[in-house]
């Protein structure tokens, strides 16, 4: 019986590429899954932007695998999937990534709770920016209250959404150490 050629150059190359793109693939999965109907009463009016969590996490911990161009692209994809005006989420994700990466040297060595607080501060700034840009686009203000409730849900959901990102990060770290 022929054994599976796990040590073949092609397989090794494919595995390396898959590891390299895995943060982006996981983020894509989070994007699509966040749009699934939940059937929870009142949820749709306050549904938060869960994509801010993986964008923040990869900007702080693995910017080499998830660049600002990836953040730009995912923002564009979210604009296309939702009915938001084109460019809104693109701009929001790009600016959020730049802000998060600028805080990388402060946050990357901190415990989970400190990083959570850092996320809370940055995402509040981004929430306000998002609300303002939407208001400029539509020519009228959406209620900020519902957006703020969405923000609180986002903060509460942070540990849940960041968990698979953290597991993947640890796996990639182990793999890199193993290769070294």
């Amino acid at each position: 019986m022929r054994s599976f050629p796990v040590n073949s150059p092609v397989f090794t190359y494919l595995a390396e590429k898959l590891r390299f793109y895995s943060p982006k693939l996981l983020t894509l999965f989070i994007l699509l899954f966040s749009l699934a109907p939940t059937y929870l009463p009142g949820y749709s009016a306050v549904r938060p932007n869960f994509m801010l969590i993986p964008v923040f996490y990869w900007a702080v911990y693995k910017p080499e695998n998830f660049s600002v161009i990836a953040a730009f692209t995912f923002g564009l994809m979210q604009d296309l999937l939702e009915e938001t005006p084109l460019g809104v989420n693109t701009l929001v994700f790009t600016v959020f990534y730049i802000l998060a990466e600028s805080q990388r040297r402060f946050l990357s060595n901190k415990p989970f709770s400190s990083v959570w607080v850092g996320f809370a501060v940055l995402s509040l700034i981004i929430l306000f920016l998002n609300w303002l840009i939407i208001a400029i686009n539509y020519g009228r203000f959406s209620p900020f209250g519902t957006a703020f409730v969405g923000y609180l849900i986002l903060l509460a959901a942070y540990p849940v959404v960041v968990w698979p990102c953290a597991r993947l990060y640890l796996y990639l770290l182990d793999k890199n150490d193993g290769d070294v």
């Binding site: 600002v68 161009i69 730009f72 923002g75 564009l76 994809m77 604009d79 296309l80 999937l81 005006p85 084109l86 460019g87 809104v88 693109t90 701009l91 790009t94 600016v95 730049i98 840009i133 686009n137």
Partner: peptide, 28 residues
Amino acid sequence: ALVAAAFGLMLLGKADILLVEKGRILFN
């Protein structure tokens, strides 16, 4: 440049609604 490109996309969304709609529904 990326931030400017994002603003450019917003302007495109206002200037050519049909093109944006076609792209959006194709992605959907």
